[in-house]
Write a protein that binds this DNA or RNA. Structure first.
Ligand SMILES: [Mn+2]
Ligand SMILES: [Mn+2]
Ligand SMILES: [Mn+2]
Ligand SMILES: [Mn+2]
Lengths: 144, 144
DNA sequence: CAATAGGTTTAGCCAATGCTAAACTTGTGC
DNA sequence: GCACAAGTTTAGCATTGGCTAAACCTATTG
């Protein structure tokens, strides 16, 4: 139907935000995994798949499957029945995740939010803040 | 292997945040769809599937499939080849989404973030802020 | 040093979200 | 009124990220 004339849209521009979100989501899981693996290595000396599963609240089989993907992405290495190690890229991603996570959580606390809520909300928000927003949060923390 | 003794963990508690995030993600898509449909109805008098697809930056077929799910959830109604309507529940979800979205976006702007970035970041952050955090943001806006 | 408890992986299933290409409607304009 | 361009839906496929149950290793321990 040649009906419904449409002017050249701003729609394409608007869709950028949604595209960004879909991109964020695909990296989000990887970020949480490597950050958690880094924490386990630092805390207990090694990261076992079952411990990752427990902390994330998912089944062991889910972690095994995800590890294969993370290996393909070059973020972790693992031998069957052995614990998990991070590659150089894995450590880099983990460090960057920690950096963002710390800023967001500290910012929420500075805003007067309870520890419990700050911990929970920051776990989700951290993946959707741009560098510009992180800078603004850091600025707020510095001058507050 | 009865190796590696483990003390009764705080892991279960910690996993709550990740469970919340997984829950957030499953409602996130529905929220963005109904909010966008509400906007289209208000702006142009009707919401066409193809317009939704364009604004979200996805294929038409993807919207058709998602609409089926949203219908099953009781959020929208649609006849084949016709435009999309929101149910009472759909409007309620859209209004709630708008409310959160506005607070988050206004908050980011008040923090000194550019319009472009505030628009993009708020599109993702809105789905991961608890009511407590929203209240803190509103408080900041009020007294700032 | 062998049995076995218990951690780990495999197999197979499901739902959600994307996509492209092909088929199908419908509103307009001739 | 009909043809057809353009908008919509269907069909079929792929990936991600969950799950359970069954099979498989391995480190401790008797
Ligand atoms: Mn994190
Ligand atoms: Mn996280
Ligand atoms: Mn929104
Ligand atoms: Mn959104």
């Amino acid at each position: 139907m040649p009906q419904r004339a449409k002017r050249p849209g701003t729609a394409k521009i608007r869709s950028a935000a949604f595209r960004r979100i879909r991109a964020d989501h695909s990296s989000e899981l990887a970020e949480d995994y490597v950050e958690l693996i880094a924490d386990l290595i630092d805390e207990k000396g090694e990261a076992r798949g079952s411990e990752v599963a427990m902390r994330l609240g998912v089944a062991n089989a889910t972690v095994v499957k995800t590890m294969k993907r993370l290996q393909d992405m070059g973020l972790v290495t693992q031998e069957p029945y052995r614990s998990i190690f991070l590659t150089g890229d894995g450590w880099k991603m983990a460090e960057d995740g920690r950096r963002k996570h710390k800023i967001v959580e500290a910012f929420l606390l500075a805003l007067g939010i309870s520890e419990e809520t700050a911990r929970i909300d920051s776990e989700g928000i951290e993946h959707h803040v741009s560098e510009e927003t992180l800078r603004a949060m850091a600025r707020f923390l510095a001058r507050k």
